[in-house]
Amino acid sequence: MSSKELDLRQVHDTEFPLPAEMQGNVAITSLSKIYNWSRRSSMWPMLFGLACCAIEMIGTASSRFDFSRFGMEVMRATPRQSDLMIVSGTVTKKMIVPIVRLYNQMPEPKYVMAMGACASGGGPFKEGYNVVSGIDKYLPVDVYVPGCPPTPQALLYGLIALQKKIDGQSLANLDDVPWYGVGPSEPTPIPILGPDIIDPRQMDLIRRQAELAAAGKPYGVRELPPVVKTTKAIPSKAAKAAVAEVVDEGELKRREEAARRRQAVLARKRARDAAKGV
């Protein structure tokens, strides 16, 4: 039993229908382990490419990087057979409708990974009129992999991070594993393509804004929250030195090491040149 699981046990959710004598029982954590192990080791991604990032995803799937080494060998074309949706590319307003539909069709437990800048937060095309600024506006995202595009190794790192996340989940915590709760979970409402994309969860907000607009009030754009501008002075060089002291030890050591190496190289070089009689 790792200390991590002990921690998680303390946050027992009362909603979880656990018999009193089972509360805090070690069986739960062992069960979690088995559940987690089986979920993480047979994570089947959906064969689902959106844009440029999908090319790197396919690169990751092919022989050089080969994510089947992590139990992901079968990319399923149907959402019904997949556990992981890798949102690999720019999510457009036109495409978010099928994406949400696909997500709803995936059986639980299901995970979403936002691959690349676009899927995470809009990416370079964020300002475009047909671009959704991040898939997390609609779906819950488990792992974000930054990069444009993330290289296959970066994606693999993200996949390992997802596995680690699963490893840390506890059956006793319903926030971690909502699908083991009681009753079916709510499907995500499917967006509507009106004059612009409409998130059904925002209907009220839209209606209120429309009323405001009818009343001639400013509409659509909101003032930015005031920035807390620090009027702090630029630290002097001495103060900076103090700042530099705060860096952690390993970092410091690394820096020193690098500096030393550089000096050594220079010294050798000079010696060699001197020997050559330059």
Binding site: K126, V132, K137, D196, L205, I206, Q209, E223, L224
Partner: peptide
């Protein structure tokens, strides 16, 4: 950019 928009996302009706 979404902080500026009342809907919190890239929409404009």
């Amino acid at each position: 950019a979404e902080e500026r928009n009342v809907f919190g996302s890239n929409v404009r009706y």
